[in-house]
Amino acid sequence: MDTAASSNPKDQSRPAAAKGRGQILDALLSGLSRLCALAVLFIIAAILISLFMGAWPAFKKFGPAFLVSAEWNPVTEEFGALVSIYGTLVTTLIAMITGVPVSFGIAIFITELCPLWLKRPVGTAIELLAAIPSIIYGMWGLFVFAPFFADHMEPWIADNLGRLPGMGFLFDGPPLGIGVLTAGIILGIMVIPFMAAVFRDLFEVVPPVLKESAYGIGATTWEVLKKIVLPYTKAGVVGGIMLGMGRALGETMAVTFVIGNADRLEFSLLMPGNTISSSLANQFTEAVGEMYTSSLIALGLILFVITFLVLSAAKFLLIRLTAMEGSRT
């Protein structure tokens, strides 16, 4: 959408004197790119309409209660989206809490502190990590991470964090190694390479003269990062975080393997839960009956809306950041 909008005025402002092949090619380019951009709009509209039509029977029957009901019973055909929505949001939040700082660390190390000979290997390793299919992360999570987590970390978490006043209920439960927390951490590991690669590329385009000036007046690495690099790249950083978040929200296979797929509302992070995409992947093939299928499609629509809201929030955040730019010295 953005590319089309920015290329159109250019085409129109072209001098009419430029004739011949160039003009035809330009017209062709403009037409084709517009077609591509419009196709995106058309596809989005088509998806939304078909999702809405599919979800309509469920919305009609359950009403707004669909969003807040924790019931998910295929036998009595009583459905509610709360468990899946909660699971989706919580796993994504955990993924961001674990993923964002590590990605920052990686990017900062590579751009600011890394010796030259190590830069390439680390950079390539990150890109390789990004290329691993999600099912591999899921299997690794199930066969390697979950057992380790269950034996060595969850008992400690339950014993120590489980007793914290006020938030102990978040860490209460048997150490299965399978649950919301594990899913969130696996997601965090999965989004790290994406975000780290984006952050690294961003930090690298900060003009050296800015950084050098800061170092020149005696700033520490930390101060350079905080006062020069981050403000310079903030739009991109927010974009990178959104990219990771988008992946975490929609990830299916890896989550299915380790989240435990239980349609019950449990607030403890050590207990099994479910996410929207995982519910869809598991239940769609054998969902019989209109209400069941429709409720699953409604879940899909909700995921669509959540993603849209997240993107909007990011845009809003950017606008506010830009508006505040002048006031800060």
Partner: peptide, 17 residues
Amino acid sequence: KIGTAKAVAWPAGIGGK
């Protein structure tokens, strides 16, 4: 409470695919 179906509202446990 639960009944017979290809998928039910499991009162306990974890689900494997």
